[in-house]
Design a protein around this nucleic acid. Structure first.
Length: 605
RNA sequence: GGGGACGUAGUUCAGUUGGUUAGAACGCUGCCCUGUCACGGCAGAGGCCGCGGGUUCGAGUCCCGUCGUCCCCGCCA
C-alpha cells in the first residue's frame, strides 16, 4: 500500500498501485506522489537510470491510475519529507504500467480550497478520494464495527427487519412504495423498526440490535437526511438503568475506536431540571446553566422593570465575551425570539446602573466574571398572574415559555461568541470535549394547541411511570382538556445527549394491552382507529409479552461529532441535498408510463 | 409552506458610481529544468458573468421572475 513503506523496507522490491496525486517534473528527474487510501509515497523516475520509463512517466497526469514496480530507497537526509509518514523513503521506478487514464477532473483530491458542495456531490467519487472523506468513512466503519462487536459480546443478536412494511400515519411522513401485485396499495419504508423490535421481544429474542437504515420524508437540515442510520436495540426485562449501561458501554467502545476515552456512567438529569437549568431538553453542558435571579430583585424593582413576579427571571451567562460596544449590545435584541410572555433585558449594565444592589446579587448568583456577558430573560408583567396551577407539574406552560426562549438565546449567544469563549474548541480532553448526559422522565403527553388534543411526546408505545398510572386513569376521561391530569404523567423515556445534540432516544415500553389501549384513548384514538392502525400489535401484546425497553441512536450524528464535521453529508458517502436530491445519480426521476401503469398509478400534472 | 446567503474561466475568488477588450491564483496545454515534495521559469489556451425578461445610449453591476446549492423557522411520534 502507498502509505505503508518505511525506512526499514529500504532495499526491498515493491509494487505500488494507486492514483497520481501530483507530478513534479524537473526535466530529467520526475517525482510522482502515488496515492491510495492508506497514504502517499513518492516515486522517482530518473532519465539517466532508464530513459524509457522516464519517457512514460512524463506522460502521466493527475488522477491517472498506475502500477509501479521498483526498489525502496532510503532518502538522503537532506531530501527527507517530514510532513508525510513515508517521507523517509521513495520508490525508484523500474517498471510502470498505466492502468487507466483520467480526464481532467473538475477538482483535485489534493486541492487546498474546498470546491462548492454542488460540484462535490455531483462528482462524489472524486470528492470521496479526499483525505478528510477517506478518514471520515473509515472512522464510520470503525465506529460501527466497535458497536457491533460490543453488543454481540453482550449477547445481543443482530436481526434484520423489513424495509417494505406498513404505513403508520403517526409521526413523520412515510416514504411509500407502490405494490404491483396489489394495485392501489403501498408499503412504507420504516421510520424506525419500532414495532418489529418490540415483536422480537414478544418472540423471545430478548436482546436485539441492528445498525439499520431509517426513512423519514421530512425537510432536511445540516443534521437531518431523509435516510439515516440508527443503532437500534431492545431488550427484555430491563430497568432504564440497564439500557443506559448498555448504551454507555457501546459508546465508550465507539469513542475508543475513534481514539477517545470517555468516562461512564453519564450524568443524569430530569426533563424538568433540564428545562429549568438550560431551557431545552438537550442541554449543552459545556456552557453554564441558567441562574434564576428573581429573588435578587425587590418587589419594587420587579414592578419598576415591569417583570412578572410570579415567573422566573433568568440570567444567561456567556463566558469571556468581553466588553461589548453599544451596537453589539443592540445586535443581541433581534437574536431573541420571545415565546409566550418572555421578555429580554439585553443590557445588564443598564440594569446595574439603576439597581446596583440587585445587579451585585445577580453577578454573584450567576457566578459572573468581569468579562462574562449576562442577559436577563423574564416574564412580562403585562401578562398578569399565572392561570394554570402548577400543582402536578414542576414546570408550568408559562414558565416553559420563559425557559425555552432563554434556552434558544443562550445557544445563539454561545454560537455568536464562540471565538471569544472558546468553549466549543477541542481541548483533547474527552472529559471537556464530550459532555454526555441522560435526560430522563420526559412528560408522557404534549398538548397540541392546533388540533386541541394530546400527542405522545416520545411515541405511543412508551410506558408511563408506574406511580403516574392513577393520573393516566383520571386524565383519560378528559382527553380534550389541556389542564387534564395527563399533563402530569411522566414517561419512562430517556434521551442521551452529547454537547447539545440528541444522539438517541428510548423508553421502557408498554407490555400490557390494557395500558396500551388507555394510551391510545388518551391520544384521542377510538377503539376502532387503534385496531385498524395497530391491530396486529395489540393482538401480539395479548400473547404473553415480557416487559421490555430499548433505545435508538443516530450513527450518522455520532460519527459527525467524532469527525468534527458541520454536516451529516461529510460522514455519509452518498448523501442528498436540502431538496432531497442525489446529485450524482440524479434521483428522484419521473418514471415511464408503462412502469406507472403496471403499478396502477396516475400522476397528476 | 416561510425567511436569509450565494451563483463570474475546470476550481477558488476579485470585479469601483452602470461606461472601452471581464481579471488574479491554482488547474490545464507547450517548451526549459537532476533532488523536488503546494517544485521553479517562460509562453499559451480557456468566459451564455446560472437562466429568462425589463430599465438604459450602454447591464457581470439596477429591477422583476425563475432554476440550483447552502443555512434557519415550520416540520422531524
Amino acid at each position: 500500500m502507498c502509505g505503508a513503506l518505511r525506512a526499514s523496507d529500504s532495499g526491498k522490491k515493491a509494487v505500488l498501485m494507486g492514483w497520481v496525486n501530483r507530478r513534479r517534473d524537473l526535466g530529467n528527474l520526475i517525482f510522482v506522489d502515488l496515492r491510495d487510501r492508506s497514504g502517499v509515497t513518492q516515486v522517482v523516475f530518473n532519465e539517466e537510470r532508464d530513459a524509457a520509463i522516464h519517457e512514460k512517466a512524463s506522460g502521466l497526469r493527475n488522477e491517472y491510475v498506475i502500477a509501479v514496480t521498483g526498489r525502496v530507497k532510503q532518502r538522503d537526509p537532506n531530501t527527507v519529507n517530514k510532513n508525510i509518514p513515508t517521507g523517509e523513503v521513495e520508490l525508484v521506478a523500474e517498471e510502470i504500467r498505466l492502468l487507466n487514464e483520467s480526464k481532467q477532473p473538475p477538482f483535485l483530491p489534493g486541492d487546498t480550497a474546498l470546491t462548492n458542495e454542488e460540484t462535490r456531490l455531483k462528482y462524489r467519487y472524486i470528492d470521496l478520494r479526499r483525505d478528510v472523506m477517506q478518514f471520515n468513512i473509515e472512522m464510520r466503519h470503525k465506529v460501527a464495527l466497535a458497536i457491533r462487536n460490543y453488543l454481540a459480546g453482550q449477547g445481543f443478536f443482530e436481526i434484520e427487519t423489513p424495509f417494505m412494511t406498513r404505513s403508520t400515519p403517526e409521526g413523520a411522513r412515510d416514504y411509500l412504495v407502490p405494490s404491483r401485485v396489489q394495485p392501489g396499495t403501498f408499503y412504507a419504508l420504516p421510520q424506525s423498526p419500532q414495532l418489529f423490535k418490540q415483536i422480537l421481544m414478544i418472540s423471545g429474542f430478548d436482546k436485539y440490535f441492528q445498525i439499520v437504515r431509517c426513512f423519514r420524508d421530512e425537510d432536511l437540515r445540516a443534521d437531518r437526511q431523509p435516510e439515516f442510520t440508527q443503532i437500534d436495540l431492545e431488550m427484555s426485562y430491563p430497568q432504564p438503568e440497564r439500557v443506559w449501561e448498555v448504551v454507555e458501554g457501546f459508546l465508550a467502545a465507539a469513542f475508543k475506536a475513534a481514539g477517545h476515552d470517555i468516562k461512564v456512567p453519564f450524568p443524569r438529569m430530569d426533563y424538568d431540571e433540564a428545562i429549568r437549568l438550560y431551557g431545552i431538553d438537550k442541554p449543552d453542558l459545556r456552557l453554564p446553566a441558567f441562574a434564576d435571579v428573581r429573588d435578587c430583585f425587590t418587589a419594587e424593582n420587579l414592578q419598576e422593570l415591569a417583570i412578572n413576579p410570579n415567573l422566573p427571571v433568568i440570567a444567561i451567562r456567556t463566558p469571556r465575551v468581553g466588553e461589548l460596544s453599544r451596537k453589539e449590545r443592540d445586535d443581541i435584541k433581534p437574536m431573541f425570539h420571545a415565546k409566550g410572555e418572555a421578555k429580554l433585558f439585553e443590557d445588564f449594565k443598564r440594569v446595574g446602573n439603576k439597581f446596583p444592589a440587585a445587579a451585585a446579587e445577580i453577578a454573584k448568583k450567576a457566578g459572573m466574571d468581569e468579562s462574562d456577558l449576562v442577559v436577563l430573560v423574564s416574564g412580562s408583567a403585562l401578562a398578569g398572574p399565572q392561570t394554570a396551577l402548577p400543582a402536578h407539574r414542576k414546570v408550568t406552560p408559562q414558565e416553559l415559555a420563559i425557559y425555552a426562549s432563554a434556552g434558544l438565546l443562550r445557544l445563539a449567544l454561545a454560537q455568536k461568541y464562540a471565538d471569544r469563549h472558546g468553549i466549543f474548541a477541542k481541548t483533547g480532553d474527552p472529559g471537556k470535549d464530550f459532555r454526555f448526559v441522560w435526560v430522563t422522565n420526559f412528560p408522557m403527553f404534549e398538548w397540541d394547541e392546533a388540533d386541541k388534543r394530546w400527542n405522545a411526546a416520545h411515541h405511543p408505545f412508551t410506558s408511563p411511570h408506574e406511580e403516574d398510572m392513577p393520573k393516566l386513569e383520571t386524565g383519560v376521561e378528559l382527553v380534550s382538556d389541556p389542564q387534564s391530569a395527563l399533563s402530569a404523567v411522566r414517561a419512562l423515556a430517556y434521551d442521551v445527549v452529547l454537547n447539545g445534540t440528541e444522539l438517541g432516544s428510548g423508553s421502557i415500553r408498554i407490555h400490557r394491552q390494557d395500558v396500551q389501549r388507555r394510551i391510545f384513548r388518551a391520544l384521542g384514538m377510538t377503539e376502532e382507529e387503534a385496531r385498524s392502525r395497530f391491530g396486529f400489535f395489540l393482538e401480539a401484546l395479548e400473547y404473553g409479552t415480557p416487559p421490555h425497553g430499548g433505545i435508538a441512536l443516530g450513527l450518522d450524528r455520532i460519527v459527525m461529532i467524532l469527525a468534527g464535521a458541520e454536516s451529516l453529508r461529510e460522514v455519509i458517502p452518498f448523501p442528498k441535498t436540502a431538496r432531497a436530491v442525489d446529485l450524482m445519480v440524479d434521483a428522484p426521476t419521473p418514471v415511464g408510463e408503462r412502469q406507472l401503469r403496471e403499478l396502477g398509478i396516475v400522476v397528476k400534472k
